[in-house]
Design a binder for these strands. Structure first.
Length: 696
RNA sequence: GGCGACGUAGCUCAGUCGGUUAGAGCGGCGGCUUCAUAAGCCGUAGGUCGGCGGUUCAAGUCCGCCCGUCGCUACCA
């Protein structure tokens, strides 16, 4: 076992709130691991920070009329606070917008160039003279090279469905400012992953046996098609490329972001007043085990790309373990901050103790596959596990000490009985088993081992029934209670990484000084004899019951809050109330004439069939007045089997310009409402009306 | 349609390198108990480990096909 651990959690993107899914995937497990390792006496550093570059932040900041700096300031604060509220105890939480990070990123680049791990390539790019930037495909419009349609997009033509490169467009224009754009050759820099492949693979092959199958699979997939990756782009927001010929360029956000782990470490060292080379102890000493806790979407970056960057430095950087988690769902559906399908952490912690959230998310963590958070599950974990097993055991033992032993732990007989020996053995086994789980990064498995100690502890009371035994054999009853108090102390230490606040309160109830970090993890297996010690105040239960009606209310709140409009949920909590949103629907007002321009009709579906090679598409034949037929494509296959549609009426936009999709011309569109989770719900007249009837 | 995953008791899930009668919690049912937050403990539920075929002395655990679910992606006017 290494004696030093450098632990990182994925840098959250400063573009939205963190939610349960993030916590369960990369933060809670890291925090638990860190607390555990500290208890074992290892030297541990836990760093993180916000990732603040990239186009999405720039775009969203612009949308608000804010400088990206101010925009990320707000999100950085909001995210940091959320972590604090669930006791994620980073040693340092930095930001990738700090000067130290700029310097280090540029240094990384220079080293990679020196080591021959950077290549360049020159390609034509569409460039806008007015905006003074190269245009990504989706910011270009122009004339289709195939059919001369004059409003073709940068990647394809909406009329003839041809796909092409933006540079192939005739007369390309900038979508933002509308002026003509030009083509010009443009040089970009690439991280030469194939050049680093031999060292990379040698390291990976050695680590694979210890890694989770989902991580290994993902990495192998990536290695199978390993190509140089562009690391520069033409953007105003990011770390500048330190070359005269690239002074209008910044690094791709994925390039600078992981370097944030290192810059965060350096910033921490500086703030602690440590020597200048302190950070190198953490990053370059082979005695350090680096661990990246991330979600599965980040595997390639942390297991392939960033290690390649580290190897490419040739400075002896240590390489990581990558215990990636899968995704957490919410009540059976994907989290969606834009769709409102998420639970804000601050909101939740306002109503329930952080420890109950920590425990539930740990017990349901998506370690081997996607898992689900439900309020029902939350209730069970709180009531049955935290309260029923741990809280109850503490309560029944300590209240007994208080009532029957005047608040001082009674002495044990020299030779405790068999049930006591078994219970203490269960504690010892739990300490070892939980450690083994944690050493392989399974916080979920470890929590289960701790729970088993709780089961064994309650069994001891059942077997001995000290509340009866005290009348016939007081010394034996006292022994049981004495042992039970030892079990509580052991449990307090074992529980500390998972529910630090509660474990600390239990510590006080046990009449102990400070908190469980006074002990070593290993000591939890052999608590000292507590005989004679006065227990603390029992004024408060360790956990409160979660009632059925509370669960129902929370689920209702969640569903109510999930109603789209999409944008509203993503507003940063700290954002000043913005100018009135343009109506609830989020679109600017239109004139009546604009509305009247729509030819909306009721139509009857006369036939419906799936479109080949398209999962979502249905081809509908609609009938209007006088038997007029129209063919329409609609992406509702997932929710409406074709046969269920025939004969019913729908609302139909008749004068939408036709578009060819999958070889079929669609003449207009069928209207549907968007339910939670993007489910389409067809509109239909309240009662039958003649086919072709106008809608106004 | 392409790529990737997954499909174990009513529910949520464990099942490392293939090897004795396939597990836990919750729920249900039946008991016990009253120290404890109506908490706890015991027993029970007898599930073709999605289906078919294959490899093997032996497969939930490896391979192929099929069915189903999900994610990413294309399409969703």
């Amino acid at each position: 076992m290494p004696a030093r651990y450098l632990v990182t959690s994925a840098l959250p993107y400063a573009n939205g709130p963190i939610h349960f899914g993030h916590l369960a995937g990369a933060y809670l497990n890291a925090d638990i691991f860190v607390r555990y390792k500290r208890l074992t006496g290892a030297e541990v550093l836990f760093v993180c920070g916000t990732d603040e570059h990239g186009a999405p932040i720039l775009v969203n900041a612009e949308k608000e009329g804010a400088h990206p700096r101010d925009y990320t300031d707000r999100w950085h604060q909001a995210i940091k606070q959320s972590f604090e509220r669930v006791d994620i105890a980073f040693d340092h939480f930095s930001r990738t917008s700090r000067p130290v990070h700029y310097e280090l990123t540029q240094h990384f680049f220079r080293r990679l160039v020196e080591r021959g791990a950077i290549t360049t390539r020159v390609d034509d790019q569409v460039y806008c003279e007015v905006c003074k930037r190269e245009l990504p495909d989706r910011f270009v419009v122009g004339t289709c090279p195939k059919c001369d349609f004059d409003a073709a997009r940068g990647d394809e033509c909406p009329r003839c469905a041809a796909a092409f490169d933006a540079t192939e467009l005739k007369a390309p224009r900038c979508k933002t400012c509308g002026t003509n754009a030009s083509k010009r050759p443009s040089k970009h820099w690439y991280l030469d992953l194939p050049a680093l492949r031999p060292e990379l693979e040698a390291w990976l092959e050695a680590r694979f046996p210890a890694w989770k199958p989902n991580v290994v699979g993902e990495v192998k997939k990536y290695l199978a098609d390993l190509k140089p990756r562009p690391i520069t782009r033409d953007l105003q927001w990011g770390v500048p490329v330190p070359l005269e010929e690239a002074k209008d360029r910044v690094f791709y956000v994925w390039f600078d972001a992981p370097i944030g782990y290192i810059s965060s470490t350096r910033e921490w060292a500086a703030q602690q007043g440590k020597p200048d080379d302190e950070w190198e102890r953490w990053w370059k000493d082979p005695g350090t085990q680096l661990v990246h806790f991330i979600g599965k979407d980040n595997i390639a970056f942390h297991a392939v790309i960033f290690p390649s960057m580290l190897l490419g430095q040739r400075e002896g950087y240590v390489l990581p373990d990558v215990p990636a988690n899968e995704f957490l769902n919410l009540e059976g559906q994907k989290f969606s901050t834009s769709g409102g399908w998420f639970i804000a952490i601050d909101d939740f912690v306002d109503r329930f103790p952080a420890d109950t959230l920590r425990w539930t998310l740990t017990r349901s963590a998506p370690e081997t596959r996607d898992s689900d958070f439900t309020y029902k599950d939350f209730q069970t974990r709180v009531n049955a596990e935290l309260l029923g097993t741990f809280g109850n055991f503490a309560s029944r033992v300590l209240k007994f000490v208080q009532a029957r032993h005047q608040g001082a732990v009674p002495a044990a007989q020299a030779d405790p009985g068999e049930p006591e020996r078994r219970a203490l053995e269960a504690l010892r086994a739990g300490v070892a088993a939980a450690a083994a789980e944690l050493d392989r990064y399974s916080t979920r498995g470890a929590a289960e081992r701790v729970l088993e100690v709780g089961y064994a502890a309650n069994k001891l009371i059942e077997e001995r029934q000290p509340f009866k035994l005290i009348n016939t054999d007081p010394a034996a009853a006292a022994t049981t209670i004495n042992v039970a108090v030892r079990l509580l102390e052991g449990l307090a230490v074992l529980l500390f990484p998972f529910v630090p606040g509660t474990a600390t309160r239990l510590w006080a109830q046990l009449g102990l000084e400070g908190d469980p970090t006074r002990r070593r993890w290993q000591d939890a297996a052999e608590p000292a004899d507590p005989a004679g010690r006065a227990i603390g105040a029992l004024d408060q239960h360790l956990f409160q019951r979660v009632e059925d009606k509370t669960v129902e209310a929370e689920v209702a709140r969640l569903r109510a809050g999930a109603t789209p409009p999409p944008e509203k949920a993503a507003a940063p909590p700290a954002a000043p109330a913005k100018a009135e949103a343009p109506a609830a629907a989020g679109k600017p007002p239109i004139s009546f004439d604009a509305f009247a321009a729509l030819d909306l009709r009721v139509a009857k579906v006369v036939s419906a069939e799936a479109v080949p090679k398209a999962d979502k598409l249905l081809r509908l034949e609609l009938e209007l007045a006088g038997g007029e037929r129209r063919t329409v494509l609609s992406g509702i296959r997932a929710w409406y089997p074709p046969e269920a549609l025939v004969g019913r009426q729908v609302v139909y936009l008749a004068n939408l310009e036709p578009k060819k999709i999958r070889g079929v011309v669609s003449q207009g569109m069928v209207l549907a409402a968007n339910d939670v989770g993007d489910v389409a719900v067809l509109l239909q007249p309240e009662r039958g009306v003649p086919d072709g009837a106008r809608v106004s």
